[in-house]
Design a protein around this nucleic acid. Structure first.
Lengths: 186, 186
DNA sequence: GTCTATACCTTGATAGAC
DNA sequence: GTCTATCAAGGTATAGAC
């Protein structure tokens, strides 16, 4: 077989960059083609289902990333809870480019695209919530309180990303990462 | 002159509903036409600048709404701070349809549409922040603390809306409105 | 002010050569 | 596996009748 011009890793990176910046409706196949270096027809060869299948693949990719960089990190019993939290926060900071990037889950959560991916998006959020809830319990919080803190953590991440974009400064995001560490350690 | 088939108020309501549900790229002139009951050509008569001018008008409309239902409410010296907060929260609940709706500012804050409206969006957010900061001072918080609480308030609103959409339940939004009242009163 | 009809372009998607 | 060429559908926007 003819070798792939662009490997799956590079492909996913380019596709995800466009989808989270422009959303499902805003991202055209031309945009995705330019960002990846593969012509449109080649994208359809890799993803016969078209743009919908591309978005699903990106969501699967982000799910893998979350399991490795959030779930596994937060539940790694060889580290202290604080160490795990700090590592997860560092990974979150990298994921969102210090607060400049848009979350892919947020980008795909419009009423026009949500029906296509609803279950996938909910599952991706739930991985984070469950992992942070486990961390909270390991910090010594009661189950109920740990779940509440986990949800607050995600709300702070998502909310501060929206505000950072809207205000044109990453300060809300950066400040909130600090605040998230504080709510678990005080 | 021939009378308007749809008045400005109805028009704005329909246009905003589509824009916040689908975003700028996802909302087509056909969508906007169907939602308002005005044919495409009539929309261009009302808004010669097309979709961009429509979005700007909707942002102006939301600005007026915010000044009346957030800023004026939160700074109304004839009411106690708690009364003002509770009224503002009720208005926020209505604005976002109990947590089911998407914020127009979030919807237009994609990298593809943000460059068109950046300043307008930032100003809309700032009205809320300034109003909640004033409320915080009236509650007795120091200026610095009041500003921090105001930002946290908006982060909670935006974040809980994202989570409510993504998880398919309005519980995060509803819970956070309660939490917002708590952070000012305890 | 609103409408029908239309021009023109971009979109998602496919066919077939290499 | 990747590409050029192409199509039908839907996009923005305009012209002109009423």
């Amino acid at each position: 077989m003819r070798p792939q011009k662009v490997d799956d890793q590079q492909l996913m990176t380019g596709l995800m960059a466009v989808l989270r910046a422009k959303g499902f409706d805003g991202a055209s196949m031309n945009d995705l083609s330019e960002a990846t270096g593969l012509k449109k027809a080649s994208l359809y060869h890799r993803f016969p289902g078209g743009k919908k299948e591309i978005a699903e693949a990106v969501l699967a990719y982000t799910g893998d990333w979350s399991e490795i960089n959030i779930q596994q990190v937060l539940t790694d019993q060889s580290q202290t809870p604080l160490q795990r939290l700090q590592q997860a926060i560092a990974n979150i900071r990298a994921l969102y480019d210090d607060g400049q990037a848009i979350c892919i889950l947020r980008a795909l959560t419009m009423d026009s695209s949500l029906p296509l991916f609803g279950n996938l998006i909910e599952e991706r959020f739930q991985v984070w919530i469950d992992a942070f809830a486990q961390l909270g319990r390991d910090f010594g919080f009661a189950d109920e309180k740990a779940k509440k803190l986990a949800l607050e953590t995600l709300i702070r991440v998502q909310g501060s990303l929206v505000l950072s974009k809207g205000l044109g400064t990453v300060e809300p995001f950066q400040q909130n990462l600090i605040e998230i560490e504080r709510i678990y350690t005080s």
